[in-house]
Design a protein around this nucleic acid. Structure first.
Lengths: 235, 235
DNA sequence: CGCAAAATTGAATAGTCTCAAATGTAGTGG
DNA sequence: CCACTACATTTGAGACTATTCAATTTTGCG
């Protein structure tokens, strides 16, 4: 049986554009890949040899300067596509933040498959356009927001991406979620130092905007005030 | 005669993937559009109704906060594609920095044309992937570089993009170019204030790294030292 | 329980911003 | 051609935010 049929991201990943027959062909050139927390799939500057769909786990995309300063320039979740098709070099490092599973392809194979399956390429285009919008929105944050605004924006984005509602109180939605990032990584996402992130978060806790049950968990108590603090655009 | 045949970006824009017949069809749904310096083609938050190829001129893509803080999140040159296909809203404002010419399409028409022309969609995908890489590289600059590093990086990028060599001296390549940006716009690209940009540039001039014949012109005198100052990755 | 790593807290510093003023530039009409 | 205006840029001084460096506390794990 084709393992794609039971794939957790069957309906979200770019392969959702394929019919069962096509999926069979794709499956023959792909291979399943398990990664451990902390492992890197590819490195900035390397030749682009592999592309992949994320089946489970969270990845960070990073770029760094010689002296070690690092910026997280993207976060990839299940059903996202990583790697650089149609280009020779990886412009960033891709690292697993949790244990993870991928569906990986040799770039050459992928690029041979793709021209015969324009619907899949279309899916990839849509995903890439979404990513571009997201990256550009983040540029506004990096270039123009203050530290409290950055942290508030980050927590809201995370709550939207990761947050199931915690309705234990029966109250209005209070998003609670587990961060897949340590403080240093949050700092690398926001273009701040770990100390500044820590200070902002404890201040928000003291102000009653959020709760921090432990260092990996966040609960948003005052979403409206957090929204206001984030300077989010009313879309 | 189909005006596409004499189009200045015929071989670089996404329509370069089309044969003359297909181009005729595309030409029928597109219309030529002239814009003046300062005019905006679309606004952040608006419905996405138009997409376009840039024929001539330079555009800025911007996003701003309520209080007026603005970030330039992209720059578009001739042969680039602007607008948001396959999505409902424009995530940013597109404004002409110079007088400009476009080849514009109603998004609906464009999206009807596209499925029958996967080679063109492929071109668009390649362009979008390039843009994404560029945006992410810029995120490293915005999040982690200092003011002098930012300005040096910017000047080098501009010299690469706009600079013909000025070989009047017969010497090694000294790139000279005209900035399509005022100082405030440079600040909006780099996530700095106009004053900081100004100070950095005069300092670089005093240090002999660059020359500033007038406020729109730059000549790079010491490319290696500028490179060093920019903390560019040795690719 | 004890250790190493992660996170927090504190104090001092540096870098960038803010506000204000001065200078330079391009364009206009006399 | 020049004076005048409006605007862009530069320069300066001071304030403030975020960083740096150092020390302490907390956390997770063997």
């Amino acid at each position: 049986m084709n393992p794609c049929e039971t794939c957790a991201v069957r309906n979200q990943a770019i392969c959702s554009a394929l019919n069962p027959d096509e999926l069979g062909v794709l499956n023959r050139i792909g291979r399943s890949l398990s990664m451990q927390k902390g492992q890197s799939l590819m490195w900035e500057g390397d030749q682009s040899l592999t592309v992949a769909n994320i089946i489970s786990g969270v990845f960070k995309l990073t770029s760094s300067l010689d002296d070690g300063r690092e910026q997280i320039i993207g976060i990839a979740y299940p059903s996202d596509f990583v790697g650089r098709p149609f280009g020779n070099t990886n412009e960033y490092t891709v690292t697993a933040l949790t244990d993870a599973k991928l569906c990986a392809f040799a770039r050459a194979d992928f690029e041979k498959f793709t021209p015969q399956h324009p619907q899949m390429e279309h899916k990839l285009l849509e995903k890439t356009l979404d990513e571009l919008d997201r990256a550009r929105r983040w540029m506004l944050l990096l270039g123009r927001k203050t530290a409290p605004e950055k942290v508030a924006s980050f927590l809201l984005e995370m709550s939207q991406k990761l947050g199931g509602n915690d309705c234990s109180t029966g109250d209005t939605a209070l998003a609670a979620f587990e961060l897949p990032f340590g403080r240093q990584q949050v700092a690398d996402i926001l273009g701040l130092t770990i100390e500044t992130v820590s200070r902002q978060m404890t201040q928000m806790k003291k102000a009653g905007l959020i709760d921090l049950p432990d260092r990996r968990h966040v609960r948003i108590l005052q979403p409206e005030q957090l929204e206001e603090m984030s300077m989010a655009q009313p879309v």
